[in-house]
């Protein structure tokens, strides 16, 4: 995932999906993949090139939780609230992370370092409760282990590697 996209990226995405019925969501996924979120300027440019009004684009962007409208910050902390994780204490982990970082779910810290979000099931319920920091998966998380990871987070690249 590249953290920044360019006008050329938007043009390529628009060209790929233009005139294909029902493809707006795919194009918006394309934008989020390039930028890490959907910047307003990119949405406007996409709308112009695909001939889709901005109002429609934002209907879609705000309907689905998956899309982010703000830069997510360097480290994305995702607390899984799927059933298994929920039962194993995910709500407590979420409030702990929220307290620790001083932000609510969906927000980014003022210094742009952390973004906190809720996800629904990451597909490894046996390891519940699960938290991911960037692409790194933390299993059987406790309040203490979560705090330790927030103090020394890995970067997106580390996570990938």
């Amino acid at each position: 995932m590249s953290p920044t996209g360019t006008e050329d990226d938007v043009a390529a995405i628009a060209k790929r999906w233009k005139n294909k019925r029902g493809s707006l969501i795919m194009a918006l996924h394309g934008l989020q993949d390039r930028y890490g979120y959907v910047p307003r300027e990119a949405a406007m440019s996409l709308g112009e090139q695909m001939d889709v009004p901005l109002a429609r684009i934002y209907e879609v962007l705000t309907f689905y939780n998956y899309f982010r409208l703000k830069s997510p910050g360097k480290h994305v902390v995702s607390v899984c609230m799927g059933t298994a994780c929920y039962l194993k204490g995910a709500p407590q982990l979420l409030s702990r992370a929220s307290e620790e970082l001083g932000i609510k779910p969906g927000e980014t810290t003022a210094d742009g370092e952390f973004h906190l979000q809720v996800v629904r099931c990451v597909g490894c319920c046996g390891l519940a409760p699960v938290v991911t920091v960037n692409a790194k998966l933390l299993a059987k998380v406790t309040g203490e282990s979560l705090e330790a990871h927030l103090l020394t987070p890995t970067t997106a690249e580390d996570g990938k590697a």
Partner: peptide, 20 residues
């Protein structure tokens, strides 16, 4: 004109102009 649309969903649904 497409100035107005709904944003968000469910109980949070609200009207707003072209993406808030």
């Amino acid at each position: 004109v497409w100035a107005l649309s709904f944003l968000q969903r469910g109980i949070d649904t609200r009207i707003a102009a072209a993406g808030d």
